[in-house]
């Protein structure tokens, strides 16, 4: 018998999961379960949607109504679900490749609409599932299967991108800072409107190996030693912040939520 939380929230018959030893997707999935319980969500009113990737496989283990969609399209499916049944708590669980490469357009428009969806990004700076190709969040200069001489693209800062596009709650946590991750995810779930939590994650098998980051313990220690809370980061220069992970909540605002506004349109058109 596993721990009670795991028994309640996961499909234990599918465990142990397929993720590599030390992959942070496992501890992040546990943290999300804890956040869901802390936020008091009811199973019958909650649906979890993912795309494709190692991260997106989480939905196969979560004991909720879940939907494993196509690569990059989790938010498109989630938008449809939320519009059809606005009373549901809709959580999207996705990877950096899924949400910011192929799914980047869905991301900015979900932000712009401020639709009531919680989007948790398991951001390991790489395409893990397909063998370590660089993603839009692979830092410039880093290595990947498809960047054997170093990545010349600039990397996206997902919370900053989401905030600029109109998301009303954006935050970053780390796999190392798992207690904070639980608290921030709970707030994101409770938030009315579109919320994005970027979880700085570790993929030891590809990102770690390609960039000689050492074992999983070293990768987590690196996160611990290089995280800067947003308040402290405000007082630091661009140079000082080079290579650091800025953590915390970047914005938490109120703005009309999309399905509420849509409901008003239905009323105005005489549909209710």
């Amino acid at each position: 018998m596993p721990a009670k939380l795991i028994e309640r929230e996961m499909r234990t018959e599918n465990l142990p999961h397929i993720w590599c030893p030390g992959c942070s997707h496992g501890s992040t999935m546990r943290a999300l379960c804890q956040a869901i319980e802390n936020a008091g969500l009811e199973r019958k009113n909650t649906i979890i949607v993912s795309g494709i990737g190692c991260s997106s496989r989480a939905v196969g283990y979560l004991n909720f109504d879940t939907i494993h969609t196509t690569h990059g399209r989790a938010l498109a499916f989630a938008t449809g679900i939320k519009l059809a049944k606005p009373q549901l708590n809709v959580i999207v669980l996705t990877g950096d490749g899924d949400i910011s490469a192929i799914g980047g357009n869905h991301l900015i428009h979900a932000c712009r609409r401020n639709i009531g969806i919680t989007c948790i990004v398991l951001n390991n700076n790489i395409y893990g599932m397909t063998g370590g190709q660089y993603s839009p969040t692979t830092p410039s200069g880093d290595y990947a299967t498809t960047a054997p001489y170093g990545n010349i693209d600039r990397d996206f800062d997902i919370p900053l991108l989401a905030k600029s596009a109109g998301a009303t709650f954006t935050a970053r946590v780390t796999a190392y800072g798992i207690n904070e991750a639980i608290k921030v995810m709970e707030r994101a779930i409770r938030h009315k409107g579109f919320s994005v939590v970027d979880v700085a994650s570790i993929c030891p098998s590809y990102y770690g190996r390609k960039n000689k980051k050492g074992d999983v313990v070293k990768m987590l220690q690196w996160q611990r030693d290089n995280s800067v809370p947003v308040k402290a980061a405000e007082k630091m220069s661009k140079e000082e912040l080079q290579g650091k992970i800025i953590t915390g909540i970047f914005n938490d605002e109120q703005y009309p939520e999309y399905t509420d506004e849509y409901e008003k349109i239905i009323e105005r058109a005489g549909g209710r």
Partner: peptide, 13 residues
């Protein structure tokens, strides 16, 4: 240990 274990293989009960 329970919070960090990626495989739910250690916990307090």
């Amino acid at each position: 240990c329970e919070l960090r274990c990626p495989d739910y293989a250690i916990w307090l009960e």
